[in-house]
Structure formats: C-alpha cells, structure tokens
C-alpha cells in the first residue's frame, strides 16, 4: 500500500490521482499512525505554513511513525513535505522541523518576486528518482521558502531563481522535492513513475 499522509495541509486528490496515473496500484490517503507503519511506500505532500504543519502532525501523532519509516521504506516528500524534513525554518520567527536532515529553511529575499511561482528548470545532479529526467527539465514550483542542507551530498537537483537553490534532495530510498511533480505534466509523471517502481 502506498500511503499519502493527510494532515490537513492542502488537497491530496491531485497527488493521489497522479500517482495512480503513474502506475501505483493501491494508493491510500491516511492520517492514522498505524497505517503509516503498515505502508510499503510513503508520500508526504503539503502546502502552506510550516508551524501549522508541524502542529498538525503532532496532534495526529504522526511524527514518530514518519520518523520510524524514513529510510526503512521508499519516501517521497513534496513541497512542504521537503521543508519539514529539516532542522528549522525561519518562517514566522523560528519553527522546528522534523530534523531528519541538518539545515535551514529560508525565505527568498531581495528583489525577487515571492512566491517563486511557475515553471522552472532543474539541474539534475543525481538520484534514482531523477534517472530518466533530462537535465533542465521544467517543473512547476509554488513556494516562498527553500531548503539549505548542511550536507551537500544529499542534493539531487538545483534550480536558479536569482540565486541557486536546492530543488530536490535524496538519500538512500528517500527523495523530496520543492516542486510539484503532480502538477508538472509529463516530466512529473515520469518522476512519480520512478518512485512507484522503486
């Protein structure tokens, strides 16, 4: 069973339909700890504010099962589901994340329009999930914050928006991206297919 974690941060229909269109057989939207532990694969999606997301995960008792499952089974984080993996975010003062990876979540600043919204390219470094995705492929982004990992070896792709920021990371069987594969047409579905087949 492929579990999409529902903690009230955004609509999960697109994610679940896109995964089905990518060949996933048994997609289930879940919000119970035991279902996360039972799942073969886990997707953590989400849009919105990090503080609210963490408190929602805590309220549903999902933090422990997520931490327990990461690196044990294939994991895909999308957008907020990437940012949540890091130590802390500067959103709304200072918010603690799940701390799976050391690093910060920062807000775009300067003359850049925020949110970073629309189609942008990724420069692929490496990852199983990005293996048949050509360098400079376009993906859909919609976010105001980006992650800065301490360990640069987890960077799977970079993207240029005034500055070069990390648009996806991967480690072992974990992959997480700032962009939305479920909204990125053919390239997005290809990425999801790689995850489903993992």
């Amino acid at each position: 069973m492929l579990a999409i974690i529902d903690y009230g941060m955004g609509n999960l229909r697109s994610v679940s339909k896109a995964l089905e269109a990518s060949g996933a057989k048994e997609v289930k939207v879940v919000s119970q700890p035991k279902e996360i532990l039972k799942a073969d694969k886990i997707v953590l999606p989400g849009v919105g504010a990090m503080a609210e997301a963490i408190s929602a995960l805590r309220k549903l008792n999902l933090i422990e099962p997520i931490k327990e499952s990461i690196f044990r089974k294939p994991f895909l984080g999308i957008c907020l589901g990437l940012q949540l993996l890091f130590t802390e975010s500067e959103e709304g003062g200072r918010v603690k994340g799940l701390g799976i990876f050391k690093g910060k979540v920062k807000r775009f600043s300067g003359r850049l329009k925020v949110p970073h919204m629309g189609w942008n390219q990724i420069r692929v470094k490496s990852s199983y999930i990005l293996r048949n995705i050509p360098d400079n492929s376009y993906f859909y982004f919609c976010h105001s914050y980006y992650v800065v990992p301490e360990d640069k070896s987890i960077i799977a792709s970079n993207t240029d928006y005034g500055l070069e920021f990390v648009s996806s990371i991967s480690k072992d069987n974990l992959f997480a991206c700032q962009f939305h594969p479920e909204k990125s047409q053919a390239a997005g579905l290809r990425l999801l297919k790689n995850f489903v087949r993992q």
Partner: peptide, 30 residues
C-alpha cells in the same frame, strides 16, 4: 479536471468566504 489533468489550476468567480476557498481547494484547485 484535477483528476485528469496534471497541471496547475486556478478557480474563481463568486468566491465569497473562507468556506468557498476551502471547497475549491479541496476539489483540486491549486
């Protein structure tokens, strides 16, 4: 539309309160 087409989708027209926003987002609008 959101179930069939995997691209960004905006919906509007006559949105009058928070529950309208919620309903459209839940239906699959980005």
């Amino acid at each position: 539309t959101a179930e069939n087409i995997f691209m960004p989708l905006t919906a509007g027209g006559g949105v009058s309160d928070l529950s309208d926003v919620r309903d459209l987002l839940n239906a699959g609008a980005d």
